[in-house]
């Protein structure tokens, strides 16, 4: 047990937690913003994959990090908008459309990868990567410095995105509309809000977040693209956002909980602890949290329960 504690409470461990959490925070924010507009978005898996692929290819052909970033984000937004087009305009169920788009992303990226490289040796494609970044004053502080400083720049962008998410959702007219549409689309429509357009915007913003997560994966976390490299992170994001009640700080904590557990399983795999079971805990916890949320909303005194629920949300939101 002491070796476990030693290895877990080390600087490297917490550094790794931040690193592993980064590609979860981005898509979780994407899930959260669509959830706020009243849709469940399980398409982040595909959005991340497309962006990860686009980033790598563009960075290799243009040798420009900036263009890779822009192209990657554009591909994510396009993908989010495509999901919106099929759901809102062509009246497809959003869950099924997202499943289809995830398949499309998986197939299309590998198909193009093989076509572009003309062969099977796809790992030969070395992508440019986003730089790491030392925070000037912070890095010299003991313990805290080595944990927080020296990360890939996208990790800091991820934390910044949490703040951006909060501002967009709670301090801008668009955010107000998104929340209004999510809580009661009919009421929103009655005051002249174009419900479909607001939902489309939410999906496109989720495309931005998802794309950043995907770009980090292929151009920071590693420096190449590989088959289905997102590996379920888009689905974990649904869990993380749900756990955090789709609020900014909650979603961050939810993502980091999954990051923590995933890192811990790597560290304890050498010890005599069933790491498979440990890994299942956050998912079980999500089911339980979700059940409690909905049980509260479903209580007989429904109206009161709902209003206090949202009152608490506001309270939480002011903290960060």
């Amino acid at each position: 047990m002491s070796t476990l504690l030693e290895s877990i409470f080390s600087v490297e461990f917490f550094f790794a937690v931040l690193r592993v959490s980064t590609p979860l925070i981005f898509p979780a924010l994407g899930v959260a913003i669509t959830a706020m507009s009243g849709n469940i978005n399980i398409g982040l898996e595909g959005i991340m994959l497309i962006a990860a692929f686009t980033g790598v290819i563009v960075s290799i052909y243009t040798e420009s990090l900036m263009l890779a970033l822009l192209a990657g984000v554009a591909s994510g937004v396009f993908f989010g908008a495509a999901l919106g087009y099929f759901h809102l305009k062509l009246k497809a169920d959003i869950i099924l459309a997202a499943v289809a788009l995830n398949f499309l992303a998986s197939g299309l990226t590998i198909f193009l990868l093989i076509v572009i490289t003309g062969g099977r040796n796809t790992s030969a494609l070395r992508s440019l990567t986003f730089p790491s970044f030392n925070i000037p004053v912070l890095q010299s502080i003991p313990v805290l410095g080595p944990i927080l400083s020296g990360h890939n720049i996208m990790t800091y962008v991820a934390f910044l995105s949490v703040f951006v998410y909060y501002v967009v959702l709670f301090k801008t007219p668009l955010g107000l509309r998104i929340r209004a549409v999510g809580q009661n689309p009919d009421a929103a429509r009655s005051v002249g809000i174009n419900v479909d357009r607001v939902k489309l915007y939410a999906l496109m913003i989720s495309g931005v977040f998802g794309a950043l997560g995907g770009l980090y994966l292929s151009m920071g976390y590693v420096s190449w693209f590989s088959r289905d490299m997102v590996a379920g992170r888009g689905f974990i994001a649904v869990a993380a956002a749900t756990m955090g009640g789709n609020l900014s700080f909650g979603t961050l904590l939810g993502s980091m909980l999954f990051g923590l557990v995933n890192t811990a399983t790597i560290y304890i795999s050498s010890l005599d602890i069933p790491s498979d079971l440990v890994q299942s805990i956050p998912y079980l916890a999500t089911v339980i949290v979700l059940a409690i949320y909905s049980a509260r909303n479903f209580a007989p005194r429904k109206r009161r329960a709902v209003s206090t629920h949202h009152g608490e949300n506001e309270h939480h939101e002011k903290k960060p």
């Binding site: 399980i42 869990a239 079980l284 999500t286 979700l290």
Partner: peptide, 12 residues
């Protein structure tokens, strides 16, 4: 019982 989204629970 609670109208919990089966999409999310099933995914988890």
């Amino acid at each position: 019982r609670f109208n919990t989204s089966e999409v999310v629970t099933a995914l988890m």
